[in-house]
């Protein structure tokens, strides 16, 4: 269990961004949906708290990676869905590559001894 507090390191913040971008890569989701999807794709490793999730979503919206689209929620209420923009897809690509590079490097470092 890991909690992503609002003031995490850059690496962790980058991780949250990457997770959100991955979570949205299939379909637009609302806030709670994103949180559930992240939990699901990380097999329960990451439970994102709303205090981290919503500021991150809005920050990424301001950056132009996510765009809002209003739809109906499961309980028939007006809900804000987030979808990836073209810039968001490019960002997902970059961050994925970056992450893979770093994780390879860390893995190599761990095996070096």
């Amino acid at each position: 269990m890991s909690e992503l507090a609002p003031k995490t390191t850059n690496l962790l913040q980058g991780t949250l961004d990457l997770l959100i971008l991955r979570a949205l890569s299939l379909e637009p989701l609302h806030g709670l949906g994103i949180s559930r999807r992240i939990e699901q794709i990380t097999r329960g490793t990451f439970q994102v708290k709303p205090g981290s999730l919503f500021p991150a979503l809005h920050r990424m919206e301001e950056a132009g990676w996510l765009a809002p689209s209003w739809g109906e929620s499961e309980n028939n209420r007006k809900a804000k869905y987030y979808r990836l923009t073209a810039a968001g897809r490019r960002q997902a690509q970059t961050e994925t590559e970056e992450w893979q590079r770093i994780s390879l490097a860390i893995a190599a470092a761990l095996q070096a001894t």
Binding site: H30, L32, S73, R77, A79, K80
Partner: peptide, 15 residues
Amino acid sequence: DLDQEMSTYLSLLAE
């Protein structure tokens, strides 16, 4: 919009 987003979120959470 922020109000709407939050209230929907709370109602979903409540369920």
